[in-house]
Design a binder for these strands. Structure first.
Lengths: 203, 203
DNA sequence: GCTCCATCTTGTCACCGCCAAGATGAGGGT
DNA sequence: ACCCTCATCTTGGCGGTGACAAGATGGAGC
């Protein structure tokens, strides 16, 4: 099935997504085009149409792929961190920022309201799964702060989410300079909101 | 000079910027085009070129205009608020979010790294002026927290900025639902980071 | 009144996403 | 073994885009 003939590409759909992901980071969303991706894959300009009826569908597939890596980035940081709420929260934030700085164009695409079709349930699930990681990590924080109402928990989640999210955007948009020490250690700075939320666990 | 003849438009540059701003919110950045703007203004498709050598130059002009309104939005909220640091900070954040929700497409454009030319000093100054408002409002906060090092002040500024900025993005990207009570009072929710930064001034 | 040149128009190019129509060949049924 | 179906891919073309070139227009200064 995956054999390549002169006419039939082995797995064009996967090739388009993979090539699309690398060309996205290479060219940026503005200069990415279906025809360029098709050309690099080695098929005609209309070949992608059967797999992705429109560019929007391909971008959706890229975003779904992105949310998977995004979730993994947070979880791998959390697994390498101590179990204390503050450490787990810091680790998740580190994963959030690490993904954004590693794939800035993909990160922006994943939160783009105009270019993506958010009615697509596949994209919705992927985004929700990533969001769930943050939600879970915020619950112990709310417990520590003696917040036990649903609205209170949502409020904490929004507070934490908006802070990393804004930090990520300001970093990849060049508004906040990355600490040179972080670059040297190949690390990523973590916003110090945690210090205010959980001051007794500082460290 | 501002008289309109059959051939010479009175003030085409201003007309392009004004029409561009309204069409930006109307169509979104993706569907905005020089030719559409020119058509609505009533000139030929190549007329804008003399005033804006490329689309990028026009977008820069829109962003500069946007940063002016942005700054005004924050300052007008601050002038209507008590002089206490917490109230002033809350007011600035309210102005920040009010602008973002009122002009979501323009707001996104103003922080777009790819479509704007950030080497343009005019755009740089405009952005810096808006940023200065937040910087000024964060200084009393740092003083209250007994933070007196330059790095500490920058850290507080980044913390506050990233939180509103992320909140603004999540709102206009449809990730955070706006409280219906806020819509009823034609108001805008303010993130409760202030409660953690200045707990003794709550209210 | 005349000239100069900023301003605007017309025409064209390559590229884009999308659509239509046709070529190809893998896989299943007989 | 044969054919037939149809998913897959190609070629060709459409309107729209930003950028560029060359020419038309007319206001402003002499």
């Amino acid at each position: 099935m995956a054999r390549r003939t002169a006419y039939h590409h082995g797995d064009l759909r996967k090739a388009l997504v993979d090539t699309g992901l690398s060309m996205l980071e290479e060219l940026g969303l503005e200069d990415l085009s279906l025809r360029k991706i098709a050309a690099r894959v080695g098929v005609s300009h209309a070949a992608p149409e059967h797999h992705f009826p429109s560019l929007r569908h391909l971008l959706n597939a890229l975003a779904v792929e992105g949310f998977g890596s995004f979730r993994q980035s947070m979880q791998s940081q959390m697994q390498a961190a101590p179990a204390r709420p503050a450490d787990q929260l810091r680790a998740a934030l580190r994963g959030y920022l690490a993904f954004a700085t590693a794939h800035p164009h993909l990160f922006r695409l994943m939160f783009n309201r105009n270019r993506l079709d958010w009615e697509d349930p596949v994209l919705g699930k992927a985004g929700e799964a990533a969001r769930q990681v943050l939600k879970d990590i915020c619950r112990p924080v709310a417990d520590r702060l003696a917040i036990d109402t649903p609205e209170g928990r949502v409020s904490i989640e929004h507070l934490v989410w908006s802070q990393v999210h804004g930090y990520a955007h300001l970093m990849i948009d060049g508004k906040i300079e990355v600490d040179s020490a972080c670059e040297a250690t190949n690390s990523v700075p973590v916003p110090d909101l945690v210090d205010f939320l959980l001051p007794d666990e500082a460290g």
